Amino acid sequence: MRLITLATAVLTLALGATAVAGDENPDTDRPAEGGGTATSGPKLGPRTDPMPTGWSQKTINIMVGAVQRTVLADGPGSDTYSCGPVPYPIIISYHGRGSNPGRMRGLSQFHDQKYCSIVLYPSGLNGLGRDSTAMSYGTLKSCWQGAPYCTPKVPGTGPPETIRDDVAFFDALINLVRTEYGSWAALDRVYVSGKSNGAEFANYLACYHGDQIAAIAPVSGPFYYAMAGLDADPSCSPTHPIPVINFHGDADKAVKYQGSGRWESCLGNLCDPPDRVARIPNLPKWAAAWGDHNGCESQELDVPVPGAAQPSSGQETFLSKYYNCNGDVEVLHYHTKNGLHDWPSLSPNDDNTQDDQTFATVPAVLGTMNATEVIVQFFKRFTLRP
């Protein structure tokens, strides 16, 4: 296994709270295994607040400014979902463009009781633009802030049109958990994941609003940048080192693994700026940029993952790892040869039973691993500490 010292400049991070490698038991402050040291934190004493009512599966409406937003919530505490230990980690899972919370719930399965987590599947507002499958402008689909087709002004809400604020929605979700769960919620273990445009938004939050985020897990994300010729966003400025785990297939027809050229995605007065042009970065270079953001000093590139192969589809998964980083964080990039625009799974799901571009039903093309299981185990290693 070849170790290489990164020769790129290390970004100086404004450290407030920092995600650190920690022990999986938050009730202790003993050193973590694997070389990271958990920062000492307050031990959990007896709880005087009552057990939260929790959500087994519940749709909740939240007012964000003057806009009603919706989230599908799952969590321990109800008669049908009781588990330990406490406090419970929080996972927010964002759907892709044109999708919905129910589909994302079915794909990611973070609410499985074995993960014992508070899980939120938010719903995006509509945007107006063009994606990789549309031949003309004017395609109206749910989406998340930061994508060129996700117009800052929400179609059909005006005049004057509502201004999209998915970042404020994220803050409202954290407040919802705080109100419902109190000290039963591990607010130092907020994890953000997403698929496609939802993955792009997880990256967006980490870059520009990551002070409450302990780790992110973007899957098949496009990570749009407006300036041609760049594979890293020069304005991305995380407030602390952020652990990143990412999955992407090199046969993805919707989000090209090697990146895309000019992509004119938004026209008209709903756009800001008008006539925005965006592009998709090269995915390996995007992952390397996160290594730079986190000040990682070592890397291993495209190492085969033992047992992660599907001979019937020609799929095989490789791992690029960036480590020896500030805050003992890591960046993991899983590259699947012949992998599609899917949430990797060893079982049929809504992704691997549809064509990448036409979305026609096809025989299931199983992945080489269960991405959700790998993501949750990664999340467990990191905690946000002051």
Results as ranks from 00 to 15, higher is better:
L15S: 09
L15A: 12
G16R: 12
G16M: 01
A17M: 06
T18K: 08
A19Q: 02
A19E: 00
A19M: 00
A21M: 13
A21C: 15
G22R: 02
G22M: 00
G22Y: 01
D23I: 05
D23T: 11
D23A: 14
E24V: 14
N25I: 11
P26F: 05
P26M: 02
D27E: 13
T28W: 03
T28H: 10
D29W: 10
D29Y: 06
R30Y: 14
R30Q: 12
R30A: 12
P31F: 02
A32K: 04
G34K: 03
G34I: 01
G34M: 07
G36D: 03
G36T: 00
G36V: 00
T37P: 03
T37G: 12
T37A: 13
A38S: 09
A38I: 00
A38E: 11
T39D: 06
T39P: 11
S40H: 09
S40F: 05
S40D: 09
G41F: 03
P42L: 08
K43M: 06
K43T: 14
L44P: 03
L44F: 14
G45D: 09
G45S: 11
G45Y: 12
P46D: 13
P46C: 13
P46G: 08
T48G: 04
T48M: 05
T48I: 11
T48K: 09
D49K: 12
P50M: 05
P50C: 08
M51C: 08
M51V: 15
M51K: 15
M51A: 12
M51E: 13
P52A: 07
T53W: 06
T53K: 13
T53Q: 12
G54E: 03
G54W: 04
W55V: 02
W55G: 00
S56Q: 08
Q57W: 01
I60P: 01
I60H: 04
N61R: 13
N61V: 08
I62F: 07
I62G: 00
V64W: 07
V64Y: 06
V64H: 10
G65V: 06
A66L: 10
A66T: 14
A66V: 04
A66R: 11
A66W: 03
A66Y: 03
V67G: 02
V67D: 14
V67T: 12
R69A: 05
T70P: 03
T70H: 01
T70F: 00
L72T: 01
L72E: 05
A73R: 01
D74P: 00
D74K: 04
G75D: 00
G75M: 02
G75F: 04
G75Y: 03
P76Y: 07
P76R: 01
P76C: 04
P76L: 05
S78A: 04
S78H: 07
S78Y: 04
